[in-house]
Structures are given as C-alpha cells and as structure tokens.
C-alpha cells in the first residue's frame, strides 16, 4: 500500500511537471498575442505595446517566462492580464458558480442512467430497450447548442419565464425561499442539457455491463437456486456490474473545473468553462495556464482516487 502511494506520487509529480511545460509551451507557441498588444489598433503606438510586453514579461526568453509564471502561481500572486485580478481568486469565484451546475448535472446523469440502463438490460430486445437505444443515440448525436436553443425557445415561449443566467434579473427584492427556488429553476435547463449526453452514454454503458454480468455462471446459479428474478437482477447481477463505474466516478472529478463552455455561454452562466474560453480568446495567458494546470492536477487526483476506490470495492485487486 505505502510503496504504491509513494510510487504513484512520484509518477504523478513527474507527469505534472511535463504537463506544466507543455501547457505553458502550447499557449505561448500558438499564434496570436494578448489583446492588450493588439497590433491592429491605430491608437496603440509601438511604445505602448512595448510597455505592455515588459509588464507581462513577454520580452523575456520563454524559460524565464516559465519560471516567473510558476513562481507567481505558487506564491498565489499571478494576476489576470485582462482585468488585473488575482487568477486564483477569479478561478475560485467561477468554481463556486460552476459547482451547482456540475453537482446537479452529475446527480441527474448518475441517478437516471442506472434505472434506465438496468431496465433496458433486463428487457433486452424488447420495445423499451429499443426505444431507449434510439433515444440514447438521438441524444448523443444532437449538437448540444442546437438542443439548448430549441429548449430555450420552447420554454420561454410556452411558459414565459426567464431561463438565462443564474437568477432572474431584478429579483433581489423577493423572499428568501423564492430566491432559492429561482436559482434551482435556473439550474434546471442547463444541468439537464449538460446531463443529456452523459445519460445517453452512461445508460448504454450500464446496459452493456449488466448484460455481460447476466451471462455469468453465478447469475445462472442464483436463478437455478430459485431466487426471485428481482433478487437475481438487483442483488447478484447489479453489484458486480457496478464495479467498473467506481473507476468512472474518479474521472468525473476533472469535469469540476472543465465546466461546459457551450452551455455556460448560451445560458450566460458565469462559470469556469466560459471564463477559460474567454481567456483563450483574449490570450489571457495566466488564466489559461492556471486552469490547464489545475485540471491536470484534478485528472491525476481523479485517477489516483479511482485506483484507491477500486482496491476498496474489489478485494481481488492488490497493489
């Protein structure tokens, strides 16, 4: 156990170092410069541009920029070029905004996919199974933004209620409970949209996993023992079918910071995905690199967690 932890820590640190170099290099090697040194603005003279470059250390060699950047990042001092605010503070704010979206989305995905997938597996080949298969492929293939527009236009024109943003604009005078419910309402559409693809994929996955387990000998034994069908499915089969999902759960973690660029932009949700996207457009290097770096950490932590979880739930696996 201990050697595993140690080994994995060393490995992950090395990986992280390479990720830091690559994410730094990719951003700097990509063509384009921060909007502050926009070369096509007649108002910007050479001197102003030059001064911005100095301010941002863009005039130094790349390796020095790399060192300066990560020094600032670890000291918590790196600031966004766009508005001069602390990068970590910005990410933190946005993270809190994205979190409910992420939690509700994940909740919908995971609670809905299992019953749907299991049912499809049990009634394999039946009408229900074929309908869910069709729906799953439909949801996977519909472009998210298109679906979002259709849904927004439908809801706004049918129910005449606001759906954009985190809350109804100008509702600050209302009661406490109303405000909370208003927030919940605003969460509904974007999180359903965020969950659709997840539900489609995951329920398919659950179905296949169940089918695989259902064909195993011990399930046949359980049936042969004369156990009721429900007990066979939900106790003997489901438990074992769940195993691979434990690993998947660890991989959900990076989604925390990735957010969803498209959904957040369409719903003008001030989340982290949208911030990262806008930072890329404005070539706000500190924000881009920091978001990259943090998501790399989350990926590594996620894989580490799923390794650990696997050990806990599957006693056959020893590391």
């Amino acid at each position: 156990m201990i050697p595993f932890l140690g080994r994995s820590l060393v490995q992950k640190t090395i990986t992280l170092f390479f990720v830091s170099v690559i994410s730094f290099a990719v951003v700097h090697l990509a063509p384009g410069e921060p909007s502050q040194v926009d070369p096509l603005n007649p108002k910007f003279t050479k001197e102003v541009v030059e001064r911005f470059r100095q301010q941002f250390h863009l005039d130094k060699p790349l390796y020095q920029q790399y060192l300066l950047f990560y020094r600032d990042l670890f000291a918590g001092k790196s600031t966004s070029w766009k508005d001069g605010r602390s990068v970590l503070g910005k990410i933190c704010d946005r993270f809190i905004n994205s979190l409910p979206l992420f939690i509700v989305g994940t909740l919908i995905t995971w609670t809905l996919s299992f019953p749907v997938g299991i049912q499809a597996a049990i009634k394999r080949g039946g009408k229900y199974d074929r309908t869910t298969t069709f729906l799953a492929y439909l949801l996977i293939s519909i472009p998210g933004f298109f679906f979002a527009y259709v849904l927004i236009i439908f809801v706004v024109s049918t129910f005449q209620v606001p759906v954009i943003g985190m809350t109804t604009f100008g509702l600050s005078g209302a009661g406490y409970l109303t405000r909370i419910m208003d927030r919940v309402w605003h969460l509904l559409l974007p999180s359903i949209l965020g969950a659709t693809a997840g539900i489609a994929v995951l329920s398919r996955y659950v179905r296949n996993q169940m089918l695989e387990v259902e064909g195993q000998d011990y399930v046949r034994t359980a049936r042969a023992k004369g156990l009721p069908e429900e007990q066979v499915h939900y106790k003997h089969a489901l438990r074992n079918a769940l195993l691979p999902f434990v690993t998947m759960f660890g991989l959900v973690l990076p989604g925390l910071i990735g957010g969803s660029v498209i959904i957040e932009s369409i719903f003008s949700w001030p989340g982290i995905g949208r911030m990262a996207y806008e930072a890329i457009l404005a070539r706000d290097y500190p924000v881009i690199i920091t978001v990259n770096f943090i998501s790399a950490i989350l990926v590594l932590v996620g894989t580490f967690l799923s390794d650990l979880l696997y050990m806990v739930v599957d006693p056959r696996i020893k590391i």
Binding site: F114, L177, M181, Y234
Partner: peptide, 25 residues
C-alpha cells in the same frame, strides 16, 4: 434497491421541476 433506483431520479427531477412555480413570469 429497485425502489431506491427508481425513486431517486424521480425525487431529484420533481424537486427541480417544482421550482418553476416560484419563478415570476
């Protein structure tokens, strides 16, 4: 297990959907 599996998503969705009645048109 089965009841739980079916009840859980229904509760989550119902909670989310009822919020509609709180939002002003």
């Amino acid at each position: 297990t089965r009841r739980l599996l079916i009840a859980l998503p229904i509760i989550v969705l119902l909670f989310l959907l009822q919020s509609y009645f709180w939002v002003p048109t």
